[in-house]
Design a protein around this nucleic acid. Structure first.
Length: 274
DNA sequence: GTACTTGTTGAACG
DNA sequence: TCGTTCAACAAGTA
């Protein structure tokens, strides 16, 4: 599942490949990700040149000339893959963007939760306001003080679902919320208000650390994630707890446990995390 | 066949 | 108004 490090990796890959590219044609193989609201999707994009690729939380924002922007959300199984000449589409390919130099960009999505939406600048700003994302955890503007304010406002919320709430902090999903709790030695079920000063600092640092480290390794390919070049990330083998139910803790050899929190799987070591 | 998985959103509720 | 909980979306795997 693409979370912040995965989406950021895709963003960096795309930036190198598609900026300056001009769209010559678009094939929509499945209209669902484009939605009924985007009836002129093809017409609006044809002939447009790509100016920028940005990321906010887990969404990608591709900027074109003439005040046009496309938001791409990959949700769980979405992929954006750039290919040179030969056709590489598969049964999950929903949209194909063809560029004037014969290269292509594929939007693949097995489970069809992802979407592509077009906006002008005003609409984009409105949309971002509506989405109401919390701070970017890797931004230098996001300080311990900000994090403690969030904990204070959500005293009763268990720490792991708190980390995953995109309106509180942007870009953290199930993998990194679980991993950050492990790194900090804190049980995912601990309520925000019960964390000591020291513990809140530990979690704060763990969040930044795990995201940065994953980014360094090109993300986690636990499910369908691949980057803009179609390659998997290498962070999966560095995971301490996520998806490791029944396996041994890499630090203490105890068995990794799993519970359900807010309907989502949570993994932790009951020995290392208090 | 059944249960379970995922990120996000919007509705329902207190 | 605000926070919390939960169903819904889709399609694959165990």
């Amino acid at each position: 599942m693409p979370e912040l490090p995965e989406v950021e990796t895709i963003k960096r890959g795309l930036e190198k490949k598609i900026i300056g590219q001009k769209i010559s044609r678009i094939d929509i193989l499945d209209a669902k990700p484009v939605g009924s609201s985007n009836k002129n999707f093809k017409n609006k994009l044809k002939g447009r040149k790509i100016k920028s690729v940005k990321r906010r939380a887990k969404i990608l924002i591709i900027g074109f000339d003439s005040d046009l922007f496309m938001i791409v959300h990959l949700k769980i199984t979405g992929q954006l893959v750039y290919h040179k000449k030969n056709d590489q589409h598969n049964k999950y390919t929903r949209v194909i963007f063809y560029f004037t130099d014969q290269t292509k960009l594929y939007f693949n999505d097995m489970r069809k939760f992802g979407y592509l939406k077009l906006f002008n600048k005003t609409e984009l700003e409105k949309e971002l306001k509506r989405l109401d994302f919390g701070p970017e955890p890797l931004s230098s503007d996001f300080r311990l003080k900000n994090f403690r304010e969030i904990l204070k406002k959500r005293k009763n919320k268990p720490i792991k679902p708190l980390l995953m709430d995109p309106r509180l902090i942007a870009g953290i999903g199930n993998i990194y919320a679980s991993e950050a709790c492990f790194l900090a030695g804190i049980r995912p079920s601990r309520r925000a208000g019960t964390l000591t000063k020291k513990e809140s600092e530990k979690i704060f640092k763990a969040v930044k650390k795990v995201l940065k480290k994953s980014l360094k390794y090109g993300g986690t390919s636990a499910d369908a994630y691949i980057n803009a070049e179609g390659k998997e990330g290498d962070f999966e083998k560095m995971l301490y707890v996520y998806g490791r139910r029944g396996e041994k803790c890499k630090k203490c050899q105890a068995e990794i446990k799993s519970i359900k929190q807010a309907g989502r799987g949570t993994y932790f070591c009951s020995n290392c995390q208090k």
